[in-house]
Write a protein that binds this DNA or RNA. Structure first.
Length: 571
RNA sequence: UCGGGGAUCGUCUAAUGGCAGGACGCCAGACUCUGGAUCUGGCUAUUAAGGUUCGAAUCCUUAUCCCCGAACCA
């Protein structure tokens, strides 16, 4: 179940809660008196990879639908293929769902818990003449299946007797036959227009150690067979999955109808989430990890929940994002900008503000006494006094952002330039009097004068100073590593049209700055703590690499940059 | 050539025969000790062609385009 606050969906202008077609179906089922008024959903990940933002949509949908109707939502691992499944993935999924803010009904469940029941169901089908053991090889099975345009033909083993099928199936289970030598198949219709109904395999022989059942089984059920059974056994009322399972629904229903099951769950399909400039397939995410193209599943550039978490995303932002993208059956690709909006929106109101300079430019205040230190009061949040304030030290030498000075400024440049006056945030006004360059002509140092009357940042004579820069005192600042993350790919849809997605990896997706300077108060920040570095963006202390005395910050998302827009438009 | 789905602002998404609405984005302005935030105003859409109807995004017909499907994967 979810927290109370999770249940509050966004509302439209008329104040109606956001609805979607699944909600409509549930309401209609409720109105029709189905399932005794119960709503019970489930989130069924396969533990063969880490959860990503697309799963978050599904999690929010499933837990949200249940919560909305006072129902329950199970967390069930769909672990019917031991070859690809691992406990590492189970653990990460548990952690990610919990982190997202959802609490599942009872214990986490596993499809593998039902292997026994599934086996009994298989014998039931055999006895009913609705399943048979087939000796065709995988290749032959494929041939016999026909294709989109050609009907299939019956397997020569299709009409074995119940007794022979039972005997063979029991011996399959007992380990008498080699892997791949036989399968148990549903006896449906080899000429069905839907290939999934052409006598689909139900059980295959696979000698693989399972992460939970070990070597207890050498036959494992297929998804199409295991899923409806698992759902029914758990009393699931609405089994929500993605669109690619739409034409598996007839088989889902066939299982529900032909098996002695305690409930009749209903499968409903919705469009999976796609995001621009990223990848959402577990297979390809795994490839990024295994080929070392990223540092791991939790690389802050990954769309995984563990990556987003390390990047500094909050569960609240991800939930708000999931609510905003909606639920429908249209194939769609959401602009990653919407995700960025969600995290900015959340952090804007909660993140404490701080001063940090990413690329320092030395500024000497010529008329400021040597050795003097002023401590200026800076609010932790300019719009929320309840978040308190802190004192920041100011001295004769400060650093400002290199980007905040231009020797020959364009029109509408409010920042520093020779002769210009700006405000140092919360401190004072300074005017640039001299520019020092090195042999290569690069600006290496600025000389300024300060207006002692402008202490705190306001000019007593009322003169207007439009530009405000962030800064740190050279004598007090702490050196930090700051990682600037950008989108992982340079194209909206990496790998589109069969291209190698690795070819469109963004070489600038990570820029590591080692000369950054942060205000002293920030040096105490704990791993995972989030801040807004004023005028720059939202940053968090890295949970893996930050060490006491060696702070490392990750940029979650930059602030919207109005200046770059003006500069670009050339106006 | 088959089966299953789907086409609404640039992007998501509402509408359930009755004013095409919201969000993001974008544009303009106000305000601002963050060129941030906030506030105001604005922009942009029913795939096409017929039909039914007082009235169609919605119903019917015919096209067109897109997605999924031929693992002993899920």
């Amino acid at each position: 179940m979810t927290d109370a606050k999770d249940a509050a969906p966004t509302a439209d202008a008329a104040g109606r809660p956001a609805a979607n077609f699944i909600e409509d179906i549930i309401n209609a089922d409720l109105a029709a008196g189905k399932n005794g008024g119960r709503v019970h959903t489930r989130f069924p990940p396969e533990p063969n990879g880490y959860l990503h933002i697309g799963h978050a949509k599904s999690i929010c949908l499933n837990f949200g639908a249940a919560a909305k109707h006072g129902g329950k939502c199970n967390l069930r691992f769909d672990d019917t293929n031991p070859i690809t499944e691992e406990v590492e993935y189970v653990d990460s999924i548990l952690e990610d769902v919990r982190w997202l803010g959802f609490r599942w009904n009872g214990e986490a469940l596993y499809a593998s818990d039902y292997f026994g029941k599934m086996y009994e169901c298989a014998e039931h089908l055999i006895r009913a003449g609705k399943a048979y053991v087939c000796d065709l090889s995988a290749e032959q099975t494929s041939e016999y299946r026909g294709n989109f345009y050609k009907p299939g033909k019956d397997s020569p083993y299709r009409n074995r007797s119940v007794e022979e099928n039972l005997d063979l199936f029991r011996r399959m289970r007992a380990g008498e036959f080699p892997d791949g030598s036989r399968v148990l198949r549903a006896k449906i219709d080899m000429r069905h227009g839907n290939l999934n109904m052409r006598d689909p395999p139900l059980y295959r022989i696979k000698r693989a150690s399972h992460h939970r059942t070990g070597d207890a089984w050498c036959v494992y059920p297929m998804y199409d067979y295991a899923h409806p059974i698992s759902d029914a056994l758990e009393g699931i009322t609405h089994s929500i999955c993605t669109l690619e399972f739409e034409d598996h629904r007839p088989l889902y229903d066939w299982c529900v109808e032909n098996l002695p099951l305690p409930a009749q769950p209903r499968q409903i399909e919705f469009a999976r989430l796609n995001l621009t400039y990223t990848l959402m397939s577990k297979r390809r995410l795994l490839q990024l990890v295994s080929e070392g193209l990223v540092t791991g599943w939790n690389d802050p550039r990954m769309p995984t929940l563990s990556g987003l978490r390390r990047r500094g995303y909050t569960p609240e932002a991800i939930r708000a994002f999931a609510e905003r993208v909606g639920v429908a059956k249209n194939d769609s690709t959401v602009d990653v900008g919407l995700l960025e909006f969600a995290i900015r929106e959340d952090l804007e109101k909660r993140a404490l503000r701080a001063l940090a300079v990413l690329r320092p430019l030395k500024v000497v205040i010529d008329n400021y006494p040597e050795g003097r230190v002023d401590w200026f009061e800076a609010p932790n949040h300019p719009d929320d006094p309840s978040l308190g304030s802190r004192k920041v030290p100011f001295g004769k030498v400060v650093y400002i952002e290199r980007d905040d000075f231009l020797e020959s400024p364009p029109k509408k440049w409010f920042r520093l330039s020779p002769g210009a006056e700006i405000r140092l945030r919360y401190a004072c006004l300074i005017r640039c009097t001299d520019v020092v360059k090195n042999d290569k002509g690069e600006v290496v140092e600025l000389h300024c004068t300060w207006d002692p009357a402008s202490r705190g940042g306001d000019a007593p004579d009322g003169r207007r100073v439009k530009g405000t820069s962030h800064w740190v005192s050279a004598a007090h600042a702490v050196r930090a590593t700051v990682r600037l993350y950008d989108r992982l790919f340079t194209v909206e849809n990496p790998g589109a049209g069969g291209a190698d997605f690795r070819a469109s990896l963004n070489p600038a997706s990570l820029e590591t700055l080692t000369e950054a300077r942060i205000e002293p108060a920030l040096a105490e920040a704990k791993p995972g703590e989030r801040f807004q570095f004023e005028r720059l963006g939202y940053f968090c202390v890295d949970t893996v690499d930050a060490k006491p005395g060696a702070p490392v910050f990750n940029r979650t998302v930059p602030l919207k940059d109005g200046w770059s827009k003006i500069a670009k438009s050339g106006k």
